[in-house]
Nucleic acid binder design. Structure first.
Lengths: 196, 196
DNA sequence: CAGGGATCTTGGACCGAGTACAAGCTTTGG
DNA sequence: CCAAAGCTTGTACTCGGTCCAAGATCCCTG
């Protein structure tokens, strides 16, 4: 992919990244609420209307995934063998995800602790990966095992969330991964053996 | 309490409940987005400004707890003996909560599935109980056990969330409670024995 | 390479949520 | 009964978000 992109598509991607970049810069300088969409648009040499063509709301400019990111998820999900126990697959996927996008998660965490309002919409509008993961789980859940499957998914996610809140961005990133592994292992100790 | 309330306080409570009541009626008739704050205020014979004196945002009128509700939590939290294992306390508290406010949870669920935007702010601005529970947990967590404690809390919450998404409002409420018990038990099977 | 259709950008008008504030009204307590 | 404290209200404003029509840009086919 990425080869046969016409001028139009290239410009779109460029505009997307320019807006995102400007937005992150301004926001990390001044804070989310102190930067208006108008300013971001102006900084990116784009009209306010166009901003909303690219991002469905102000929060999205922080939390939407880069177009290439989604490719990474899909590979991550597709790479798990069909007969792997769900819990193992989930831990593998989530650890792979945080390994790749931990830096981004750290930014998100900072923003969330700064402003709870941002955090709110973050969970709702933001986490496309979580939505995709959820879909993936339900798709590979055999009838009758919905409860166990959903429970595993939610528990694993909760474990990652726990690791994220306990980790301090000043500590080395490896610590976060260790923490995540520990949380997943502990939380899953009663679940991992279930036949899903 | 409730006895020595002056005229002023009584009027405030009355206004609060009037606004809430009108809001819930209009919203359940027409949907969240189709009702403006102005309409709610008008319906409750109150100015728009006053609405925002009582509720910090539009979502709050749906998700804020009734002043009496908070009393119930506090009793619930205070009623657990200090030396009870954390997991047992958590399941007891959460089951007590959903038993009492299950109806409200069902309304919330309906609203959330209707409009994701509402769901977003619901999690952030809405769940005062969860915040209180979180504070209660951290307060009684001995130093060194933070990880296990947070993990239990998040896992237990995830279990309730799972039960809530799996339950259909058409089914009897007892089913929901059974489901919640099952989820808690399964999710906690590896955690319950930890010494916290 | 010309030109018509598809797509994207833009400005302007508009709506609703949320904030700030000054002015007026009601409760309270002395 | 009166003054201070507390609430309510209208007004005016900012900002996020939507809608739309007009213009610019790209793409594709003849």
């Amino acid at each position: 992919m990425g080869k046969a992109m016409g001028l139009r598509e290239r410009k779109k991607l460029e505009a997307w990244r320019s807006i995102r970049e400007c937005a992150l810069r301004l926001i990390s300088e001044r804070g989310f609420d102190a930067v208006s969409v108008e300013e971001i648009a102006e900084e990116a040499n784009v009209s306010r209307t166009t901003f909303f063509n690219y991002f469905s709301c102000k929060e999205a400019v922080v939390f939407d995934p880069d177009p290439l990111e989604t490719q990474f998820w899909q590979d991550l999900l597709a790479s798990r063998p069909d007969d792997e126990p769900l819990w193992d697959a989930l831990t593998g996927i989530l650890l792979g995800y945080v390994t790749q996008f931990g830096d981004r998660l750290a930014i998100h965490k900072r923003l969330k602790t700064e402003s709870p309002a941002v955090a709110a919409s973050a969970r709702g509008a933001g986490d496309h990966f979580q939505a995709e993961l959820r879909a993936w789980v339900t798709a590979r859940t055999p009838a009758g095992s919905e409860l166990d499957a959903q429970l595993m998914l939610n528990t694993a996610t909760a474990a990652i969330g726990t690791a994220l809140t306990l980790w301090k961005p000043t500590e080395p990133f490896e610590d976060f991964l260790d923490l995540a592994r520990t949380c997943l292992h502990k939380a899953g100790s009663g679940l991992a053996a279930l036949p899903v």
